[in-house]
């Protein structure tokens, strides 16, 4: 529980962070809320030699409504999502999902940009952004680019972000249809054993902890588009997934949970 030695730099802006990333390369990591990175460093599972602190970039903490979508600054903390009036009106799903992340101390430190970049298949918010059909805005040495959430996650704790890119903003559509988030775990503070996010009445369905990345339940989505009932569609929730096995669940149980929770989520979201 004692991290290896590292150097520490404070970024003055997103541009400065990108510049520092370019300077220190693969040996560096961005530090936002730190609630995923620092435990990994304490276990010495991560040993970055330079930490670039972007957690102080308070101008990157905002939630605002722009032309049909919500723009959220990457350094916005889960607690701000949880208590956002803008989200209450325009995207209550994200507000609700944020309220289920970890415990209050985690939510007061963790950031939306940080959890997206960490790309943990077991995290709540990435799956919610995925179901919502959100977009990730990333800054790099050559300016910014937008990445669809469905293209963002590329592997176990991996995204398509380049080593010298930083997430600056997350966009999600506003005022979409019925939604649900079903999180199954053993303690309130835990990651989901399996979670299911349903957005916009069933047009977006995503799975938590059913593979190496947050996943779209594409079989469910296409079945619904093809007119299948919610009950029938939910039976396809685990199609094409390779659920992980751990102390809480084997693949059989995860498959069962994915189907059962999808059925619940679709019912709550009003998908017929």
């Amino acid at each position: 529980m004692i991290p290896a030695a590292f150097d520490y730099k404070v970024a003055e802006s997103a541009e400065h962070a990108v510049q520092l990333l370019g300077e220190y390369g693969d040996e560096s990591k961005l530090l936002a809320g730190g609630h995923s990175l620092i435990p990994m460093m304490k276990f010495r599972l991560a040993t970055p030699t330079v930490l670039i602190d972007v957690g102080r970039l308070s101008d990157m903490r905002y939630i605002r409504r722009d032309n049909g979508h919500i723009s959220i600054g990457a350094m916005t903390r889960h607690e701000q999502l949880e208590n956002s009036d803008v989200l209450a009106e325009a995207c209550p799903m994200l507000k609700h999902v944020a309220s289920l992340v970890g415990d209050p101390s985690v939510r007061h430190r963790g950031t939306l940009g940080g959890t997206m970049a960490h790309a943990d298949a077991a995290s709540d918010l990435p799956a919610a952004v995925l179901a919502l059909g959100g977009t990730i805005v990333a800054a790099g040495p050559n300016g910014t680019r937008e990445i669809a959430a469905s293209d963002f996650f590329s592997g176990y704790f991996e995204s398509v972000l380049a080593a010298d890119e930083m997430i600056t903003e997350i966009k999600v559509p506003a005022d979409t249809g019925g939604w649900s988030y079903q999180k199954f775990n053993r303690r309130a503070q835990d990651w989901a054993i399996v979670g299911v996010a349903v957005a916009d009445g069933g047009s977006g369905v995503s799975l938590v902890n059913m593979g190496s990345t947050p996943l779209r339940a594409e079989a469910v989505e296409s079945a619904l588009r093809g007119g299948a009932s919610a009950a029938d569609a939910s039976l396809m929730a685990a199609d094409g997934t390779s659920p992980p096995e751990d102390h809480n669940a084997d693949a059989e149980y995860r498959t069962h949970l994915a189907k059962a929770l999808t059925a619940r989520a679709l019912a709550e979201a009003g998908a017929s």
């Binding site: 276990f43 415990d103 053993r186 303690r187 309130a188 503070q189 835990d190 751990d246 102390h247």
Partner: peptide, 24 residues
């Protein structure tokens, strides 16, 4: 507290060893 057949602890952190909180 779980161990594998070789005697290695398999859930040695509070992430996997579930001490309940007031919420439970």
């Amino acid at each position: 507290a779980m161990y594998d057949d070789d005697g290695n602890p398999t859930n040695p952190s509070f992430m996997d060893y579930l001490v309940p909180s007031a919420a439970e």
